[in-house]
Design a protein around this nucleic acid. Structure first.
Lengths: 203, 203
DNA sequence: AGGAACTATCTATCGACATAGATAATTCGT
DNA sequence: ACGAATTATCTATGTCGATAGATAGTTCCT
């Protein structure tokens, strides 16, 4: 259900075609909410049916058109309502933790490999999130720029601040994951002796 | 797909009926992996069909039986394989961050309410996780006790350590969430002025 | 003029999971 | 002996999302 609100939120910045939205989900928004095009196009059609957005046909080349969607008053209302309602926290389903809990069933080397991947994955993500945060703070990012143009200057600070704050949450979480991974590697060394992966001469 | 491996992992401690498994998912394992009974029973049947577990009928009262499942060699192999294979990290879908990114569309008071709930939720969870961690470290927890009985003493340390480590990951993440929520409340104060919720006399 | 890359959209199938039940035997307290 | 709570299991429906396509027009480069 949240895809719908992610789309509404995007459309508060500027009208978009389905394809534009797909691109956004491949980049910026995609770091917070992922969705494939096969979900986006039908959802947009449904939302139009419910009056949350309006599609207009715009020319595309000599023989074709594309549909550009804009958010309606109804859509803004729905977005607000969703943002103001308390969300139920979904029950936990945490693959990394589940796997770690049973590391005694994997070999130590494969447990290490797991944690190294964990660290690498989050290191990469944290890098991306930090870049995004910077791009937001400097208003470089095209979709932030478009958004700022649409709203009065006195709103700019909070528009930027909340988006940066969201990314800061991801960054903090990512850094906690990296820390956890490191402590896991140490723990394995303690329990099983240090890694023999890179040959220790004379062992 | 992970439900299957959660079940296999559970069954490495002791044989269980479907109902036992359901209970486990309501408690201990449930803090790491949630699943309703409507998923558990059919999955157990499927797993039996694939030879990963074996069901045996045991008497239950004078006129009835229940099915107790044990893990098979095949099942252990499947669990090991899963633990050793690299898991693909699922693309992110983070409701809290998404909502935070658009807090300018909710009123400041409702943004605060959001964050307070966030903090409360994770505070409660962290409490649970800490309790679980303690119960594991002291081997008080019945399902840990059963597990330790089944394996030689020299394995006990690592069995316990990995499970505690898993919970430590949850705790760290939870604490990062609480921190983030607090910083969010401060941010809102900065941006919108301090809360007027609890009446400031003379305002 | 031709092909490659991009824009734009749509469809179909499948598994995971949520939600909301229903059924029936058993045990336990009074 | 009776009702309540617990144990044990099963079903059905719907949504979300993953995966893997298909189609067709457009722009751009050579």
């Amino acid at each position: 259900m949240s895809l719908r609100y992610a789309l509404l939120a995007l459309l508060t910045a500027e009208p978009l075609t389905g394809y534009d939205a797909v691109k956004r989900f491949g980049g910026s928004v995609g770091y917070v909410w992922h969705a494939p095009d096969s979900q986006i196009y039908p959802e947009l059609r449904r939302m139009e049916g419910e009056g949350l957005i309006e599609g207009e046909q715009v020319r595309w080349g000599p023989n074709s058109t594309k549909t550009r969607y804009s958010i309606t008053g109804e859509g803004v209302r729905a977005l607000r309502e969703w943002l103001e309602a308390p969300i139920p926290y979904a029950p936990l389903r945490d693959v990394s933790r589940m796997r770690a809990a049973y590391f005694e069933w994997a070999g130590p080397e494969s447990a290490r490999e797991n944690l190294r991947r964990h660290i690498d994955y989050y290191t990469e993500q944290v890098g991306r999130w930090k870049d995004m945060r910077q791009a937001i703070l400097s208003a470089e990012h095209p979709s932030i720029a478009a958004r700022l143009e649409k709203y009065p200057a006195e709103e700019h600070e909070r528009i930027i601040a909340y988006k940066a704050f969201a990314y800061e949450g991801l960054i903090a979480r990512g850094e906690a994951e990296i820390e956890w991974g490191r402590r896991g590697l140490d723990l394995i060394d303690e329990l099983e002796g240090p890694s023999q992966a890179r040959g220790e001469p004379g062992s």
